[in-house]
Amino acid sequence: MSTDAIAYYTARLAYETDVSDVAGELAAGTEGLVVVDTRNLESWEQGFIPGALHLPTREIAARAEAEIPRSARVVTYCWGPGCNGATKAALEFAKLGYQVKEMLGGFEYWAREGFEVQTADGVSRPPIDPLTAPKSGIACAC
Rank of each mutant, 00 (worst) to 15 (best):
Glu59Met: 07
Thr119Arg: 09
Glu116Gln: 12
Cys83Asp: 15
Ala52Tyr: 11
Ala52Ser: 15
Gly47Lys: 07
Asp21Glu: 14
Tyr98Lys: 00
Ala133Tyr: 02
Glu16Ser: 04
Gly80His: 10
Ile49Cys: 02
Leu55Asn: 01
Arg125Ser: 07
Arg12Ser: 03
Ala11Thr: 15
Lys95His: 11
Val75Asp: 07
Gly47Asn: 06
Asp4Met: 10
Asp21Tyr: 07
Val123Arg: 15
Met103Ala: 02
Met1Asn: 12
Cys140Ser: 14
Glu42Ile: 00
Asp121Leu: 02
Val35Tyr: 06
Gly51Tyr: 10
Val36Phe: 07
Val117Trp: 00
Trp44Leu: 05
Ala62Ile: 01
His54Val: 02
Gly51Ala: 11
Gly82His: 14
Leu13His: 14
Val34Gln: 01
Gln99Leu: 08
Gly85Ser: 13
Met103Glu: 03
Arg73Met: 12
Gly47Met: 07
Ile60Pro: 04
Met1His: 04
Tyr8Gln: 10
Leu55Thr: 02
Ser2Asp: 15
Ser2Ala: 09
Ser20His: 14
Leu55Asp: 03
Ile49Gln: 08
Asp18Ser: 13
Gly106Lys: 06
Ser43Tyr: 00
Met1Gln: 12
Asn40Tyr: 09
Pro134Arg: 15
Val74Met: 09
Leu91Asp: 04
Ala120Leu: 08
Ile128Lys: 03
Leu33Tyr: 10
Glu16Val: 04
Pro127Asn: 04
Ala64Tyr: 11
Glu16Gln: 13
Gly32Cys: 06
Leu131Asn: 13
Ile60Ala: 05
Met1Glu: 12
Thr119His: 00
Val75Tyr: 05
Gly47Leu: 08
Ala14Gly: 05
Val117Asn: 00
Leu104Trp: 02
Leu53Arg: 10
Ala133Gln: 10
Ser2Lys: 05
Ala133Cys: 03
Gly51Pro: 04
Gly105Leu: 00
Asp4Ser: 03
Gly24Val: 04
Met1Phe: 07
Val123Thr: 08
Arg39Tyr: 02
Leu41Asp: 15
Gln118Arg: 14
Glu65Met: 13
Ala5Lys: 09
Ala64Cys: 11
Glu31His: 08
Gly106Met: 05
Gly29Ala: 12
Gly97Leu: 07
Tyr109Phe: 15
Gln118Tyr: 04
Gln118Gly: 00
Gly105Met: 01
Leu33Val: 11
Lys95Gly: 00
Trp110Thr: 02
Ile49Tyr: 02
Ser43Asn: 07
Arg112Met: 13
Thr38Glu: 03
Gly82Met: 12
Arg125Ile: 12
Ser20Arg: 09
Ser71Pro: 00
Arg12Trp: 00
Cys78Asp: 12
Glu108Leu: 00
Glu67Ile: 10
Glu113Asn: 09
Ala141Pro: 00
